[in-house]
């Protein structure tokens, strides 16, 4: 029987097995820029022990890693660097937006901050929080594992004009709007 049987039985089972193996051997690239890095350290260290989820091995080379943890604010000067790191990663790859600055820009609604890294690279898991607590991070990591098991990957970018592609709770009410509303 060939692998491409009409029912696809073997290929699904093999993919399942592969995905199962993948989700417990996450090689992560921590793109640590800011405050969230402190909570990332706490999560990675023995107190919260991210190794229980098979993600305890940070690889500091994008070519050897399959999950990009974007930890901390990305500003417009940094954005091209992030993009090039993402482009250097091999498929299959996933991106975790760690902290609210990476999700939407957070309360840094200003000239220098990127309003969500999903305007630059596709994001799979959003972990909001400023910074998220380690428990919150572990929850996000488990959600990522589910996604890997299902073989899903995000491919779309957020278009600020179309208002799609970002979870509804992260489509935000900006400070500019807030000041306008108050002054009108």
């Amino acid at each position: 029987m060939s692998l491409n049987s009409p029912t696809g039985f073997f290929s699904t089972k093999i993919t399942d097995a592969l995905n199962w193996a993948r989700k417990f051997s996450i090689f992560q690239y921590p793109f640590v820029t800011a405050c969230c890095g402190m909570e990332y350290m706490s999560t990675a260290a023995s107190h919260y022990d991210v190794d229980r989820f098979g993600a305890g091995f940070p690889r500091f080379s994008p070519r050897q890693s399959d999950v990009l943890f974007v930890v901390g604010t990305i500003n417009h000067k940094m954005a091209p660097v992030l993009k090039s790191v993402y482009d250097q990663m091999c498929e299959p790859k996933w991106v975790v937006a760690f902290g609210v600055c990476t999700c939407t820009g957070g309360f840094y609604d200003n000239y220098s901050t990127v309003q969500g890294i999903d305007t630059i690279i596709p994001v799979d898991i959003y972990i909001p929080g400023c910074p998220p607590r380690p428990e919150n991070v572990l929850d996000g990591l488990m959600k990522l594992q589910d996604k890997i098991q299902k073989g899903e990957q995000s491919r779309t970018l957020y278009d600020p004009n179309a208002k799609t592609g970002r979870p509804a709770e992260l489509q935000k009410y900006t400070i500019t709007q807030h000041i306008k509303n108050i002054e009108s």
Partner: peptide, 11 residues
């Protein structure tokens, strides 16, 4: 203006 952005890449 505090929110006038000049991105290098992206929208």
């Amino acid at each position: 203006p505090f929110d006038k952005r000049q991105p290098l890449i992206g929208p």
